[in-house]
Design a protein around this nucleic acid. Sequence first.
DNA 1: ACCTGAACACCGTTCAAGT
DNA 2: ACCTGAACACCGTTCAAGT
Lengths: 209, 209
Amino acid sequence: MTEQRTARSGSSRGDVRHGRADVVRHALRVLDSYGLESLTMRRLAAELAVQPSALYHHFPHKQALLAAVAEAILADREPPASGGWDDEVRAICADLRAALLTYRDGAEVVATTWSFGLGARGPYDALVARLARSHRDAALVDAAARTLLHFVFGHVVAEQTHVQAAAAGAVDTDAETLLRGTGAAYDLGVTLIIDGLHARADSGSAIRR
Amino acid sequence: MTEQRTARSGSSRGDVRHGRADVVRHALRVLDSYGLESLTMRRLAAELAVQPSALYHHFPHKQALLAAVAEAILADREPPASGGWDDEVRAICADLRAALLTYRDGAEVVATTWSFGLGARGPYDALVARLARSHRDAALVDAAARTLLHFVFGHVVAEQTHVQAAAAGAVDTDAETLLRGTGAAYDLGVTLIIDGLHARADSGSAIRR
DNA sequence: ACCTGAACACCGTTCAAGT
DNA sequence: ACCTGAACACCGTTCAAGT
């Protein structure tokens, strides 16, 4: 991914040519600064000082752009420290939440991309891979991974929605909001599902592999 | 809610006047026939043979219309048969899924309304009310209700997305899809969370109240 | 490989005015 | 109470053409 840059002919001017990675980087900037509702093809084009139609050289449609943005949000996460399956699953979920919170509306972008089957499969694959080593029932592994993801996406989307509503002054910063902000409710939700899995563990208890 | 009807002056014509309930009924029809993406203010207005601006007499903005549609989707559900808290929670979730599946894209409409705090609180309230009678920890009850709802909404949104993708021919009707269609994966997800709750039940085991 | 210019077919919302 | 007509400020996408 070493960006070979642009503006190579010496004719001066601010008329830079943009590569795909360039477009994604600007999209992340617009997303984080103004939110998903402001991340339009026309607005992004304006930010790049380019016609809207120029973006269709890089992406066939907006959802493809959004998928690339989702992958960027999920990129460069460290693998969880190895331990019992429950701790590793917990770590994958915590890391996912951290990635989603990195950018404004990050959860919505990643959740949409995943649910449309256009990418962002990393977290699902990581969960399935880990759970398959501790639980033999493939249907259970699939259901558990999806249940965890539905919870994480739903929870973090709500978190980010409330942060935004609070920033707009529409909502008070009360105790409940503060508590949820610490991630306590998040941990409780993940724990509930993991405990459910414990109730039907069919393999090793806490040893790795 | 007895609709007193319209067209009372005898001057003939198809220029019917519409009440709020009338608008919601037509919105449900458009939603179920063409999907949420086609449920636009302009399209709905055309269906009612009215100018788009006329809709703003009934609703301050589109989200308010959608909230009314969400409430209509959730309306008239029967209360669950009484039993142990786990069976009743299971029944509330099953009934919610059934309601969401009644209309095309029903899950998306209800989930959005709930997450924006604009309505559709019925399922949350029902879950909290039932769980509060069997679990003393209010934070746990809240987290459990939200975890269940995040799962149900996420799952049914995915179900309806896949149905639509399959109908468009973009996806094969393979074994996995068929299995999920039966609701087996849904039951597994709900069971996982309920089992997690069992692991920290602090009250009676199976007796009502 | 990357971009322009112009068009097409739409959106949600506001507002003054009408009955 | 319910609606019209017209406007404002936008959307995503396509396409022929340019460098």
